[in-house]
Write a protein that binds this DNA or RNA. Sequence first.
DNA 1: CTATTTGTTTATCC
DNA 2: AGGATAAACAAATA
Length: 268
Amino acid sequence: MPELAEVEYYRKKWDPGIGETIQHILVNHNSAVFKKFKALPSLNSLVGKKLISSQCHGKQMLFILSKGTWLSIHLGMTGNLRAANLEEPREKHDHLVLLLEKRSLIFSDPRTFGQIKWGSQSNSNGIPTWWQDLPPTILSEDFNLERLVIATKRHKKCNVKALLLKQEYFPGIGNWMADEILWQTKIHPKRLSMQLTKQELHDILKKCRSISRVAMRIIGTNWGDLPNDWLFNHRWKDGGRCPIDGTPLIREKISGRTTCYCPFCQNR
DNA sequence: CTATTTGTTTATCC
DNA sequence: AGGATAAACAAATA
């Protein structure tokens, strides 16, 4: 579920814990969310550290703790964060519980495609080096036409749907955002990267920005409803129709992902 | 019982 | 070599 704005929404769920110190940590040791990151015992090194701040980069979250320590979480397909009372019992898919002074912060993920990593190497801002080396975010200055041209040159025979899902170039874009961008730019999802014109890339750039901005404002805050004239509210409904021309929408697997598009207006 | 899932990594093929 | 594609991961839901 979580793409750019949903990740931002969940990141804020831990805000109530800012300023509090970690007293204990509960983990589901067998959970796959720890598989990628071995040294599990070292997770206890987070005890005694205070939660200072947090930030998102695309679909990744970074929690900055005191003394140069950090914790990073990727929500995968079904992950979520919540804050709860200290007494609240753990639920089935809770993999990590940080017990602070007045509340607990919980990472839960039924399908366990999420990932957790942590460490104590960081610069003076508490930010680890690997985080600084991430590609430019969609709403930053460096996300520009030049970068999109590089992406299309590198991935010439990749269809534009799959291109938009590459986090190296489009951090935070996921399945629904990619479909929304293509629908709003009227570009067919199967078009090859190498066939895209400068104008089309420019349109994609603009829509990446505007869709991200609106999603961050609406979903990233209270998870409100996106505009009804977006594809989003029609894409999963059986019998869903294009909000522009009423054409029945097509749902088709493209590059392994279910893709929804309008066969009539996405004709570029 | 089968097919589906808003993500990413790995293996395999080209 | 490096890009494109399919499979794998796991569990809920229809």
